[in-house]
Design a protein around this nucleic acid. Structure first.
Lengths: 129, 129, 129, 129
DNA sequence: GTGGTCTAGACCACC
DNA sequence: GTGGTCTAGACCACA
């Protein structure tokens, strides 16, 4: 996980993304303890307030859980996490815009679809890069 | 193209997206004249400066071209449509982040592909599932 | 001489530059007759007013001369054309700014000097490109 | 760095030039913090929006970098300082035009070279006359 | 008519 | 504190 303060993206969002990605990649497993706010802040060279905000939003998304006095832990994926309609709508909007950008960068629709196939793993046989 | 002042997204970015989409959908053809800054501002109920900013960024991306004193036109990106390496890198980063979000929202691969088809027609020839 | 309406530079300045360059290259000789305003406008696909403005400024710079009823002619260089102090100051300012830009583009001071040597012709032996 | 509101040149371009020059002259070093938008605006007696525009263009040219919430800094263009082909072409066009002007003003080659030396020190080793 | 620049002043997100 | 966005309204050069 790398934080780039000049990327224009909010630091707390970059932190959130890094943690989510670590979970998806298996680096962080459900139940694992996350570094404390202060420790994470030192590691990533950001303000503790920034880490606290990232943790707070992640908790509201039920990605992590805070246990008072014990720390912050990766949530167990099996819980009944219902899809937030607002989040879903926002995602779809962002997705469409990103696809539009991609086509402007010269990527064809099929290249975009193949990119998705790649990311979702599964059947990658014959997928063009 | 509709501008939503309450969406949280900058108005000028919404304008940019709308114009790019109109071009991709063929509503705007290369060489077509865009509404003048003032006219577009009236149509979309935004300040002319906001439109001017959108136009200027689009021009820097070579999506449109301005002819001083005459107006703004959809670019004819003729032959020299070279892919900007920096923009492509940025796109891939955004793509990765968005895919991570999508997985967390529980979206399947096919749902995403359907989203693309919904917007850009349904010819999937050459795409492997 | 090519006029590019999307370059951002005023069309009348582009015209002026083209004429000056033709003179320096010998394509236009002192005493030669320039195309009429209307003919030049047709050739370059610009408004006659634009050509008229270019001619007017060139005449104020004593580069060309208009003879009422006969047309416009390239001035004879030998006339006592005194250097306009204001023009000279403006030139120096532009020159310094351009050199600064050049250094930012990665050109070294020596490359800039060599570019000048090239343009002023004369002793080009051993000048790096 | 001085801003002259009556020079006819856009104020934001004057700001850009002043900052670039300060960097080339070593007054500003890579990593140095620039005055905040508001402070620079006060110093130069211009509107903060004007400063913001100058900073934004400079950032797009990778001359400076902004860290949201912290400020603006002189870029450390590390190793990947690749010459932008488009910018270089634009530079050469401007250079040609300026040289044409210079010849018309009767400036000699040495006068131009002296102008460069005046601004960027006098080490001419390796330059052929 | 067009876009380009500038000002004044507001509100916001981020750190 | 920082920069980012937006508005309102002005003036200018260019075609």
């Amino acid at each position: 996980m790398n934080i780039n303060p000049t990327s224009g993206k909010p630091l707390y969002e970059q932190l959130m993304f890094g943690i989510k990605q670590d979970i998806l990649l298996g680096i962080l497993q459900p139940g694992d303890k996350l570094p404390s706010v202060r420790e994470m802040a030192q590691r990533q060279l950001v303000n503790p307030n920034t880490v606290a905000k990232a943790y707070k939003v992640l908790e509201s998304q039920e990605v992590i859980q805070t246990v008072m006095g014990r720390g912050t832990f990766v949530a167990t994926h099996s819980e009944t996490r219902q899809i937030d309609a607002r989040q879903l709508k926002k995602f779809k909007t962002q997705f469409k815009e990103l696809m539009t950008e991609g086509m402007y960068l010269g990527l064809t629709k099929n290249e975009l679809i193949n990119l998705i196939n790649e990311w979702y793993g599964g059947d990658n046989s014959g997928v063009k890069d």
